[in-house]
Each structure stands twice: as structure tokens, then as C-alpha cells.
Write a protein that binds this DNA or RNA. Sequence first.
DNA 1: GGGTCGTATTAAAACGATTCAAATCGAGAC
DNA 2: GTCTCGATTTGAATCGTTTTAATACGACCC
Lengths: 336, 336
Amino acid sequence: MPVAQVRDVAARAGVSPATVSNALNHPTKVSPATLARIQAAIDELGYIRNDAARQLRAGTNRAIGMIVLDIANPFFTDVARGVEDVLLGQQRPLIMGNSSQEEHREANYLDLFEQQRMDGVLITPTGDVLDRLRRLRDRGTSVVLVDRMTRATEFSSVSIDDATGGRIATEHLLETGRRRIAFIGGPAGLAQVANRLSAARAAAEAHGSGEIIYTETDAMNAEAGRTGVDRLLDLPPSQRPDAVFAANDLVALGVLQALTLRGVRVPDDIAIVGYDDIDFASSAAIPLTSVRQPAHQMGSTAATMLVDVIADPAASTVRHITLMPELVVRRSSQSS
Amino acid sequence: MPVAQVRDVAARAGVSPATVSNALNHPTKVSPATLARIQAAIDELGYIRNDAARQLRAGTNRAIGMIVLDIANPFFTDVARGVEDVLLGQQRPLIMGNSSQEEHREANYLDLFEQQRMDGVLITPTGDVLDRLRRLRDRGTSVVLVDRMTRATEFSSVSIDDATGGRIATEHLLETGRRRIAFIGGPAGLAQVANRLSAARAAAEAHGSGEIIYTETDAMNAEAGRTGVDRLLDLPPSQRPDAVFAANDLVALGVLQALTLRGVRVPDDIAIVGYDDIDFASSAAIPLTSVRQPAHQMGSTAATMLVDVIADPAASTVRHITLMPELVVRRSSQSS
DNA sequence: GGGTCGTATTAAAACGATTCAAATCGAGAC
DNA sequence: GTCTCGATTTGAATCGTTTTAATACGACCC
């Protein structure tokens, strides 16, 4: 007897396998006395339920799959923590995959989730996966989109309002006396970048005397921030910006570094505002002002929506929740 | 017919279910012609194999489970990437759990892995899990420890030599003229901290005129670095250090920030060396000198060992691999 | 004492794939 | 034309659990 099974437990407790199963899954149907006897048998034999068999018969896998865009970005690990916190309370395992923005990795995880017949999937899509998601849904797996609304709004989603973020960051810079604001980030095609940028432009226009200079980058990391700064400092002095609005904190950290190394004083000469408010923003040499995204809350909200839909798919209405960012002011944008 | 099954595929291709199974799992046993016919049927029907059933009958789950200590620490996400890269090539799904150094989370994931009858588990243990791991092993799940050797050396492991790391960092500081070196990190009970610290002391002793001042912290984050600095700067000027060796980069970033805000010049007044060489180290306002740990390599090595053991458990000898760190010199420790 | 009803228990079927031993097929040898 | 052998294919059993419908058991009432 290498590994104890239900029938072994049943034999030991002097009951039938069906009763053991009931004890495990519907304890109220079993009398307290037998329940205790079964529990004792389980402990003595060290019985661990075979989940594959359970899943096959029950037709449902309690696990939730999640595909994150970039596990190296603290923003997404925050989101994941929010999801984890909700699911742990629900006794549902979370299976996390990292797409690294690569379509084949994303497809790999979708295959896995499909084969495992997951109850639900949370995804920040990177490739064109609408068809895959529809297939999942048709197979009975609920889907909630995180931080990305698709044009087709057929799936519920939770996202954070980028326009508001772009606006409050810009207004803050304008109110503290800055006028020429460089927006660094890209590629311009990314929805997040486009939304933040156009909101920044609108805010500058509304203000009257503000101006946005867009410096496009091909990625959103520290390196992009550094090259962005190089390009800005090549401008004739009269055209140099007095503030930088970085599309995320990684870029902002790169900007801060490049400016520091070149002897430009932050915030005296140039102010910086980042985006995401990752932990490293407040720990930078000059603590960064940043647009805080409620990442953890986005994760927990998405997980809650998903669990609700699974619990009662019939009552499921597609919902789109948009959370609001807020500005956290720190040293890097203090008025000079 | 809600979802296609093997028998549907078989019917469509005009073969028996057994042949379909063979086509999927032992393609060499099936003639090319039928193989093509079956593949066509699969595509037409959109068949996706039910993994629960497969696993139940085959008695094995191809997936590998991994429990990381702290997903918010870039060091561990690097390790995870190394693991992922190997497993993806092996067509094995990776199921990642984050213990956040909390025993109950760790236990939760171990439960999951045990119920799922995983082929293998990679773990950086936080609690006292030896018994659990033994049980897993007895149930047929192979185990490899990552970055933590237990006293009981019964499980294979991959780790990185902390003594070497502590030594090379200290020697570098001494060689560039520093004499009073503050070591910041903790709690002192952590094996990593203890090993790095004692190696630093040994190096100082060997050099003759060096001195290590240990400042213990209760965690390893930026906040700890800041409070560490506060304590050091309270010392009378004659006792102030001229260098800081931080137990990891998060602490080092906190140190850099606190020094900058207080007007202490880095590296002129105080040099800094960190540990881990996370991406943020090179992106700091003053790029950080750091002890680079081959995190990615550790992950890929561990995954390779695990896959080998699973492939041939009989030939499995317990092995302990120790990788060497190297020093990456940057601005923060440039000689003044 | 017979009948009714609710609770606790159980026997047997079912979930959907893989495996094993046995059957079938075809080509080449004689 | 028959026989042999290796390559393909297949029927039936099986993996370990949950579920369903039926049974057993008392307690309570008349």
C-alpha cells in the first residue's frame, strides 16, 4: 500500500468510501461521530486526496489561473498579491504564469489552463487572444481581464483610469510652476501610453501656458529613461524642459539617474513625476513623486469579480470597473 | 456535444480511441497517414485533452511546482525566469507559488502540490518543512532545494557561496582605501547574513587594518537601510564609517537614499557595496557596486537537476551545487 | 404494533483519458 | 499460395474519486 486511498480510509474507519467522500465534501451530511472516526483514520494513514481523480469526477477544478505581463515589474507583483489575498481566503489555489509580453508564452499558459479545465482565468493580454478566451468561456472557464480593456467588451474587466493619471500629474507640475514638460515613454501605440499622453496634452492646453514635449521610447524600462534624457539634453538650452513626466517609474528612475550623472539638479533644474508608485519610487536617492495606481486593489477586485461569476454564472452581468489613481507628491517635484 | 473528447476525435478520424491516445503520447507508434488524419480531426473539433483524466490514468503530472520566498524581490524573479526557461523547453508547466516568508502560505502550496501529485518541486524553504518534503519524496515527487541548504543534506540543492561574496566585497573596499566598513543587514540569525558577515570580518582581519562595524536590522528592505544609516550618522565623527556593505541591494538603495538626503557624498565620503545586483542597482542615481549572484543560472541549474532526477530517479544521487558570485564595480565605490 | 418521515449510510455508476495484451494487416520469403 | 514477422490498430480494463438513487435505521405518532 504505497499511498492511502479513500477505500483504505473507509476500511479503517469502518464505513464505505462514499461516506468518506461525504465527510470531505459535505460534512453536514455525516454524523459527528463518524466524522471524527474518519478524521482519525485520515490522520493515521496520512491520506491526501488525489486531485486528478476528484477533478475528473467532479468536473471542476477549483484553481484559478493568472497570466501576468511582466513579473519583473513590481506593479504586477502588487496586483498578484491582491489576487492571492482574495483567493487564499476562498481556499482556491492560484496558478501564476508570466508571459513576459511574449505571445508564445502566453499561448503556452492558455493551453495549460484549457487542459486543466480551470474554473477561472485572470489575464492581462499581450497578444491577440480574443478567440482563445472565447473558447475558454465556452468551455466553462470564467474570464476577467486585468488592466486591459479590449475593444470587444464582452469580458468583464478591471482597469485603472489612465486619463485621470495623466491629468493629475500634469496639473501638479503646472501648479508648481513648471511649463515645459517632457513626456517620456512608449511605444506610442501602447494604450496606456497613448491615454496618459493625450490627457497630459489636454491638461496643458486647458492651463494655457503649458507645453508637452513627447519623447517616444521603444520600451518602458530604466534604459529607455536614460536615452530619453540624452535626447532632451541635446536640445538648445532655451528649449530644454523644466519637468519630466515618465510613463512609468522604471523610466523615471532611469531619468533620475541620467540627470544626476550629468549634474542636472532634481528637482531644482528639472522636476520628475513617475507612474505606478512602486516601492523603489519612494526609495530612490531623490524620492520620486508618482501617480499611485491601486495595484493591490485592482488585483483583489478582479479576483472577487471572478469568484462571484464562478459562484453564479447565471447571474453574471459583464461589468467594467475603473479604479482611480492618485498623486503621491515627494521630493522630486518639490517647487524650486 | 459540449466538448469534444477522445472518442469524438476517434470517430471522426475513423480510428479507435486507443490510436488517438497513441498519436498524442507515442507518435512513433502510429503510421504517418493516420497521424495526419487524427491531427486534422483534432483541429476540426477543437479538441483539448482533459488533463485530469490523463493524469489519473497515467499516474503522473508533468507539472513542476515552485515556491519562492518573496516575489517582490527581483532576485527571486530572476531565479524564476531561469527555471521557466528550462521547463518551457521541456514542455513542462511551471506552477509558481509565493510564500512571502509566511509558513502558512508555504504550507498551503505544499498541500496543493501534494494533492496534485506533482512530478517535482523546487523550494526555497522558509518554515520547518523537512517532514513535508520527505512525505512528498515518499509519494514520488522529486525535490530540489534552491538557495537554502538544510542541515539535513538529504535533498539535492543549488546555492550560491555567501562566504565568497562577503569576502570579495570587503577586499574590494579595503583595496580602494576604505578602512571602517559598516555591514548593514539582518536579522543576524539569517544564514545568508551570518555567512556574508563572518566572511567580511575574516577578510578585514586578514588585511590587518580594516574594521567591520555590524549594524543589525530586523528586515532586508530599503527602510532597514535608512534606519541603519541614521544610527551610523549618530556616531561621533571619528567613529563614522567610510564605507557601507549592505546585505542586499534593497538595503543598499535605502542607504544611498538616506545618505543623499543628509548631504553625505557617495562615493566621496562613504562608498557603498550592495548584494544581488538587481536591475535597480545599476539604475540607481549613483549606480551601485554590487555582488552579482547568478540568480538566473541558479534557477536553470536547479530546474535541470530536477528534470534529470525525474527522468531517472534510480540513477539519482543527491548533489549539492554551489555557484560563485562575482563583484560588479560601479560608481558607488569608486576610489575618492 | 403499524405507518410515516427524516437522517445517515451505501452500492454501483460515472468522469475521460491511457495502457496492455491481443488482433489485424501487409510485405517479403519460400 | 502459404507462412512468418514486424508494424499498426484495437477492445477492454483501469486510474481514484464523487454522485445518484436507493436502503437502512430509528424516532415519533396514532
